[in-house]
Design a protein around this nucleic acid. Structure first.
Lengths: 208, 208
DNA sequence: CACTTGCCTAAGCGCTTGCTCACCTTCAGG
DNA sequence: CCTGAAGGTGAGCAAGCGCTTAGGCAAGTG
């Protein structure tokens, strides 16, 4: 009550989802999926969290799986956009890799409930939907590999195994969604800074 | 048929589980949980994979959750033993950290089906069982932190944030279970070697 | 031999699941 | 004032769930 429009002007998540009821259902689903997992979440639970009857869900989404797909798609779009923005940015390869890791990790920590669904519920998608998502994931991988390759070519980085290191960097960042705890001592910013430093060390970028 | 005792003499997994029927059920459960997740797996599926009727499961295990708990407990015991063996081993801190990462990663890749259940189905455990497992996880964290602290004290490592780096190292290794693919190009040994190198870089250990 | 014990199955109970259907309300446009 | 679309509800269906029960069979023991 009264918290309807907290910090107005801030980039509101899920703004692209309309109408309002569909967005409320989607947000409820993100919370429920993140908390219990897709298979352990019931459609009644989602509807209940959104303040609606179970049947209301099916006015806006054909199935429970379509809800997951929508969440997964939007989340992957956002994650890819973050990485591409860093890859296409200005500065040295070290600057861009640092920026990529920092913003990517910040998103996984700050939106860890969304990220958890996006990163750990891929198996619950239908074969067609999963195939669509896998394409986006390969693009994310390409964005990071691109930066690392640039750094190697420029002599900034020392990386014996570029594909393997790319995989490790992404894996490290993604797993933040699993362990990050809002009640914990670290802020998303702090984790992002720590991880950016660790990743620069992994690629052998000369420090300071 | 005939494959009953393949490569006899090799350390057989789940040898500590008896009788034979209970072990077959547990192995079937590991496969099913790893493939579909705990909640998406039915007791009929587990029993079917073990070649038994659904009711047979309840002769050996009280509930489906007890099966998960047994798997999780044994897996965490094994994971902790691997880390402790490395932490208590001989050599410099760099030697021990390298050995810890190498063997820990090798286990997560080689037994990625077990590791997936162990690492990603914690939420499906009952509150009491989860509490028991969390203790083991804290001990694993302590083992790694111990090595890193040793390295810092000896001047071998340069680590500004020991708890954060410990978390990142464990996170990196654990996430191998999520992406490792048997059909992929890398063997568990290769991933272990790559990761050991990456982690030594993360802690600033002087290379060669 | 009778009897217990260990291990297994067929059948099915009670409940929850994803999803549907008949119906209701609100409201803009002619 | 009537109409039709949009968005919601209560009740409930068919299927599948975790788990139980009654009973069968083989092996070991007095």
């Amino acid at each position: 009550m009264g918290a309807a429009k907290e910090t107005l002007g801030e980039e509101q998540p899920w703004a692209e989802v309309s109408p309002d009821a569909a967005r409320r259902l989607l947000i409820a689903a993100v919370d429920a999926f993140a908390e219990r997992g897709y298979h352990a979440t019931t459609t009644r639970d989602i509807a209940g969290r959104a303040g609606m009857s179970p049947a209301a869900l099916y006015i806006h989404y054909k199935t429970k799986e379509e809800l997951l797909h929508r969440i997964s798609r939007l989340g992957h779009d956002k994650a890819l956009a973050i990485l591409r923005a860093a890859a296409d940015g200005e500065g040295t390869a070290a600057d861009r890799l640092s920026a990529a890791v920092r913003s990517f990790v910040r998103w996984h920590a700050g939106h860890h409930t969304t990220a958890r669904v996006v990163q750990y519920e891929l198996d619950a998608l239908s074969a067609e939907h999963r195939a669509e998502i896998v394409v986006l994931r390969r693009l994310s991988d390409a964005a990071v590999r691109e930066i690392i390759n640039d750094g190697v070519r420029a002599g900034e980085f020392d990386v014996p195994d570029v594909p393997g290191t790319t995989l490790a960097v992404l894996s490290l960042c993604i797993d933040v969604a699993r362990w990050f705890d809002v009640g914990g001592r670290r802020t998303p910013d702090e984790v992002g800074a720590l991880y950016a430093d660790l990743v620069l060390r992994m690629v052998g970028a000369a420090q300071r």
